[in-house]
Design a protein around this nucleic acid. Structure first.
Length: 476
RNA sequence: GUCCCCGUCGUCUAGAGGCCCAGGACGCUGGCCUUUCAAGCCGGUAACACGGGUUCGAAUCCCGUCGGGGACACCA
């Protein structure tokens, strides 16, 4: 492969961006970036029933959110247009005609009902259905009757094989193949046909796709052969499995939806990092930057075994990114989650970054972080009765009173100053800092869990903090 | 059912014949730190599916068994 690689991601716009699709897109993208190649996005919208513009938009939005950008395709154009299969119908028809003229394909007039019946029969008799070639040698061309175009498989013994970049050599006997349909009655191509024609015409050098496609590679190879074309290289990626160990599917697994993770407060960096480690590895590296991905990725390091979705690890990774990405960056991403909870803060509001700093070691998602921040944005607080009973005793309220008085006179409402007061009060009382900090924490947050006490008070703001302390004091 | 692929800790994986009585990560778990919760640090738990070969030597090669998944459309 002397020239720069051309790879593609070819989704069908029949739903949102699937997590498996996202990984396939990522692998293709990384390969193109690493080897100075081109990443093509082609839309396989030949399923007229199910393809929708909304789905197309959802897929494009998903890729953009993940920051996987394509070099050629929708919104971009490129030297091999069009990039939508429904706009390439003439091309498919021409190739089909050419194959028919060469005697390598034929018109089949069997009706769908007939085929369906025969298939049902085969199923009943527990054998695999193969089209029996009824129209294979047919020479007449009944006027006005609809037909599909089938590719002729060799009648002799033999086999096709290819060298998969991840699976190695795979072979299939001709006898296991049948004369498959390339063109429907309405002239719309089927997947195996459109895919081959386009991959070739778009000069795709390497096709990387999910392992569910290995079996369709054989009929495709037969088409390359019939056309006298050189097939591209293939790399079949291991599947991503749900918790039930079945292929992650939109119907059964909600986590298959890329954008659901966005809504859950997962960062795209973390999602990609998680997903790349499903089936690919670089030694013991776990946290891998985009730059490293590009530097290291190769299909030869892709594994052969399917991987099970592991939400715990995704969450862990997400927190790693929450902790290490610039806090100002995270702050901007946190805002929509707060707005969602009824607390829209203006962009650049200093509290946003303060929340990030306070909660990124405690929250695993932006969603959790926002939930943690809400009590600091509301007025007033509801005390957890158990916590109050334990920590807001008559004795401890005396300490709370001292803290309240001293803190109110502080020239500056800062972590250092606030912590100093807590420390001073506890020393004076001859008790550990916990004896003072916990009652304050409960008074101010309603509960026993929060960031450091100085930080908590700071986040609360002087006015609201004093108000809550007074409320707790009034209680006793 | 037929065909195809796969089989290392619960999960993701490192491992390309001796460096492995198998390493890392998540999870779980013990401890340290500590004003709570986290985070962090130190430690523990747990796997080469099974049976035959090949070899001085196998997680690594071969065969079989079992197990899992995928594909069998005028869907992609």
């Amino acid at each position: 492969m002397a020239s720069a690689p051309r790879v593609r991601f070819a989704p069908s716009p029949t739903g949102y961006l699937h997590i498996g699709g996202a990984r396939t897109a990522l692998f293709n993208y990384l390969y193109a970036r690493r080897f100075g190649g081109t990443f093509v996005l082609r839309i396989e919208d030949t399923d007229l029933e199910r393809s929708t513009p909304e789905s197309l938009k959802a897929i494009l939005d998903g890729l953009k959110w993940l920051d996987i950008d394509w070099d050629e395709g929708p919104d971009k154009g490129g030297p091999y247009p069009p990039y939508f299969q429904t706009q390439r119908l003439d091309t498919y028809r021409q190739h089909a005609e050419q194959l028919i003229a060469a005697g390598k394909a034929y018109r089949c007039y069997c009706t769908q009902e007939e085929i369906r019946e025969r298939r049902a029969l085969a199923e009943k008799e527990n054998r695999a259905y193969k089209y029996e070639g009824t129209c294979r040698e047919r020479t007449d061309a009944p006027e006005g009757r609809p037909y599909v175009v089938r590719l002729k498989m060799p009648s002799q013994e033999g086999s096709v094989s290819f060298d998969d970049l991840v699976l190695g050599k795979i072979t299939k006997e001709y006898s296991d193949l049948d004369d498959w349909v390339m063109l429907r009655g309405d002239g719309i191509p089927l997947y195996n046909f459109g895919c081959v024609i386009d991959d070739h015409l778009m000069d795709i050098t390497l096709v990387a796709r999910g392992q569910e496609h290995v079996n369709s590679t054989f009929p495709q190879l037969m088409l390359y052969q019939a056309l006298g074309w050189q097939p591209p290289q293939f790399a079949h990626l291991p599947l991503i499995l749900g918790p039930d160990r079945e292929k992650l599917s939109k119907r059964k697994h909600k986590e298959a939806d890329v954008m659901l993770h966005k809504a859950n407060g997962i960062l795209p960096e973390a999602l990609l990092n998680f997903v790349i480690r499903l089936g690919w590895s670089h030694g013991n590296d776990e946290i891998i930057s985009r730059q490293q991905m590009i530097e290291w990725f190769d299909f030869k390091d892709v594994g052969t075994t399917s991987g099970v979705w592991n939400p715990d690890k995704l969450l862990w990774l997400n927190q790693q990114y929450l902790k290490t990405l610039p806090s100002s960056d995270i702050a901007g991403r946190l805002a929509p989650f707060l707005a969602e909870k009824g607390h829209p803060l203006p962009a650049g509001d200093r509290r946003l970054e303060a929340f990030v700093l306070a909660f990124r070691e405690r929250a695993r998602t932006l969603e959790e972080m926002a939930a943690m921040a809400v009590p600091y944005l509301k007025q007033g607080v509801t005390l957890d009765e158990k916590a109050a009973a334990k920590h807001l005793t008559a004795d401890s309220l005396k300490l709370v009173q001292q803290v309240r008085d001293e803190v109110a006179t502080l020239p500056e409402w800062s972590v250092a100053g606030l912590d100093a007061v807590i420390k001073a009060v506890s020393e004076r009382a001859g008790v550990g800092m916990g004896k003072v900090a916990q009652p304050i924490r409960v008074a101010v947050t309603g509960n026993t869990v929060s960031p450091g006490i100085g930080e908590t008070l700071l986040l609360m703001g002087k006015e609201e903090a004093l108000r809550r302390l007074d409320a707790a004091l009034a209680r006793g």
